[in-house]
């Protein structure tokens, strides 16, 4: 199934790229770990460091910037994706037995529990806190003949360390924490400890404290030492 799943993922990316909207998206969530293998290609990185679920999340940092009119459900219809309206507010998800697509936007101001409409794309998005942190520092990885934008692994890992403490489901929380720690370890072995430190220092004190607390519960002394230096 894994092969079919990644084939479907590549097909979605190809179609988004062809439609000219991939450049407006940042891939976030557990699928980042799969694509980080391009970034860590020289190291002993494995995309098996975390469990990859069927959820594939696309962050749209600036929805107003999207110029193309692309109906995403129509674009993916022949692949067998169906639209699902989740919850009482009607968040749109595109579901397929191998992948579940969701769109996210950074939450601004007071925040709202309503979906953020994306009329040009024919879908809506969930507005979530802390997503600006992921879009603040991104990398591009080459896939076939196009590029995919991902959050820098340091931002991805530190973001996970913030949100794992907010998760209501304990198992998901542990999964996030483990993925974060593993990615930070690979970054350290790649000699990018200074980047982790720089990203950490760019955070507000409240978030820094949250990360430290998270690492203390995980008893990750080496990472703690780097951050506290």
């Amino acid at each position: 199934m894994e092969k079919k799943q990644s084939e479907l993922c590549f097909e979605i990316l190809r179609r988004f790229n062809k439609a000219g909207i991939l450049k407006d998206f940042i891939l976030i969530g557990s699928w980042c770990v799969f694509f980080y293998k391009e970034y860590f290609s020289d190291d002993s990185y494995t995309d098996q460091i975390t469990i990859k679920t069927r959820d594939i999340d696309f962050l749209i940092d600036n929805p107003a910037k999207i110029k193309q009119e692309v109906n995403i459900p129509e674009l993916l219809e022949d692949l067998g994706f169906i639209i699902i309206f989740k919850g009482s507010k009607g968040y749109i998800k595109l579901e397929h037995p191998y992948l579940i697509l969701e769109f996210l936007v950074p939450e601004k101001g007071k925040g709202t529990d309503k979906p953020h409409p994306l009329p040009r794309l024919g879908v809506n998005a969930v507005a979530l806190r802390f997503l600006n942190f992921l879009s603040a520092n991104t990398i591009k990885v080459k896939i076939e003949n196009f590029y995919l934008t991902l959050p820098h692994p340091a931002n991805f890992a530190l973001h996970k360390l913030i949100i794992f403490q907010r998760r209501a489901i304990k198992d998901k929380s542990l999964k996030d924490r483990n993925a974060a720690v593993e990615i930070l370890k690979v970054l350290i072995s790649k000699g990018e400890a200074d980047i982790i430190k720089k990203v950490f220092n760019s955070l507000i004190l409240k978030w820094q404290k949250k990360i430290i607390k998270g690492l203390e519960t995980a008893k990750e002394e080496e990472i703690l030492r780097i951050l506290k230096e």
């Binding site: 469990i51 069927r54 699902i84 579901e95 489901i169 198992d171 542990l174 999964k175």
Partner: peptide, 18 residues
């Protein structure tokens, strides 16, 4: 419950919805 079982449980819920 372990991490893997938690993930599988969520995946099962998703599959039932699907």
């Amino acid at each position: 419950m372990g991490v893997i079982k938690g993930v599988l449980k969520e995946e099962l819920e998703n599959s039932l919805d699907m």
